[in-house]
Write a protein that binds this DNA or RNA. Structure first.
Lengths: 123, 123
DNA sequence: GACATATATGAACAGCTGCTCATACATTCA
DNA sequence: TGAATGTATGAGCAGCTGTTCATATATGTC
């Protein structure tokens, strides 16, 4: 029955109705938000950064202690902290020649916690 | 006072006590868990996959509809669905030559929702 | 001032990711 | 059976990521 050009666009046969497809499309997240969300998850999608954030969940730490705790070079950690700073996941407090990093947003702990529960469940 | 080799290991001067450092280290997440969590976030850290999951949050969809809704080629979507399947974030139901994908774990919606709130707040 | 310490950064490089394009597979229909 | 359809997959490649190594900067100490 629907051999219209509209139906041909969605030739799959499930959603015959282009109008319905358009309605669903409108309900999706807008692109800028998708990018922001993906960027946030990208930032959380690295073992070193997860470790750093887990460490900071215990409280403020200086760079060399973080490096020692996560088992990475201070340089590597510094590079990662730079990224975490840029995305406002951590903040710095400078005291003399030391830099003390802390979580800038405690929602992150929630996300880490939820992710942890998720991976534990399906183990 | 602490010029012992132990103190030299953590020469930074913040955590003079190696014992304290060891205690903190024990409180950190074990490596396998860190990897699993990072892998989960890695999976969520891509715009196309976020879009796919957002689409599936509305309900089961076949591949070509997903492709149309997220604005990507069916091939690209199929590749991503393969990854999402491998990490058990989505599941398939095959009917004839169509494949209907759905979220396999509704915790994911929670994570997406939390991330969305987070990026909206700091906008 | 000269030197050590704590952190930051740039360059370079290996490994990974996500796309496209071509192709294979499976199912339905003529 | 042959052709069309819906999906899956392999190869190839451009772009990105995370590390190391060398170096720079800034503060504190002598």
């Amino acid at each position: 029955m629907p051999s219209t050009p509209a139906a041909a666009a969605a030739a799959c046969g499930h959603l015959h109705d282009t109008r319905e497809l358009a309605r669903l499309k409108r309900a999706l997240m807008p692109s800028p938000e998708v990018s922001s969300i993906a960027d946030l998850f990208k930032m959380l999608g690295d073992g070193t950064r997860v470790r750093i954030l887990d460490t900071l969940a215990q409280g403020e730490r200086c760079v060399c202690d973080i490096a020692e705790l996560v088992g990475m070079s201070e340089s590597a950690v510094s590079h990662q902290l730079r990224l975490l700073r840029a995305t406002r996941l951590v903040r710095v407090r400078r005291v003399g020649r030391q830099a003390f990093y802390a979580l800038d947003d405690h929602h992150i702990i929630g996300l880490l916690h939820d992710a942890r529960r998720h991976v534990q469940e399906q183990a």
